[in-house]
């Protein structure tokens, strides 16, 4: 069996190979956003770190939620996907620091989630499902062959997203 393809911090991977499994490991405040075109079987996974690219020059920079989503859509389409067929699921955006005195200032997770919702709204695209927020890390897997996305939390079983 082939090794899964790790989608690291600020990366995106698009695949049409049915044997591929795309994985974003240990998402804390980061967001794992998956897109699946069930007809062309093109799948993509984005591992975004921060909410907005602000002044950066790359409109598709995968490090940021806003540019990252646009970049993922663009690459999916280049690989044969159609925008109106995209099934979108996302996970992550936890607040890992829940100690008093620290947590309020650093809820980047919540800001990432908000940014994603804003982008999807402005693109008039709907999220099929999400498992976001909370205080626990998540690993997200996208099985390209069957277009299945899962989430796993430490100590628990892998479940469908």
């Amino acid at each position: 069996m082939r090794d899964p393809i790790s989608v690291g911090l600020g990366e995106r991977v698009v695949s049409r190979d049915p044997e591929d499994v795309l994985v974003a490991y240990g998402l804390g405040s980061c967001l794992g956003i998956g897109m699946i075109d069930p007809v062309s079987r093109v799948c993509g996974l984005l591992h975004a770190v921060l909410p907005a690219k602000n002044n950066g020059t790359d409109p598709f920079n995968p490090k940021f939620v806003d540019s990252g989503i646009n970049g993922l859509i663009e690459e999916m389409i280049k690989n044969g996907a159609m925008r109106n067929r995209l099934v979108i699921r996302m996970a992550g955006g936890a607040n890992m620091l829940t100690a008093p005195g620290l947590s309020k200032t650093f809820d980047i997770g919540a800001r990432n989630i908000e940014s994603a919702h804003d982008v999807f709204q402005s693109l008039r695209m709907t999220l099929k499902s999400e498992d976001v927020g909370g205080t626990r890390g998540r690993t997200v897997r996208l099985y390209v062959g069957i277009g299945r996305m899962t989430v796993r939390v430490i100590g628990e079983k892998e479940v469908d997203l």
Partner: peptide
């Protein structure tokens, strides 16, 4: 120093705070 926060989780999730704080 600030008071400490203890996280029990996957290494990736724990280290996100560092990445997110410096990554911008």
């Amino acid at each position: 120093p600030s008071p400490p926060a203890v996280m029990v989780d996957m290494v990736g999730a724990i280290l996100d705070i560092i990445v997110a704080t410096t990554g911008g």
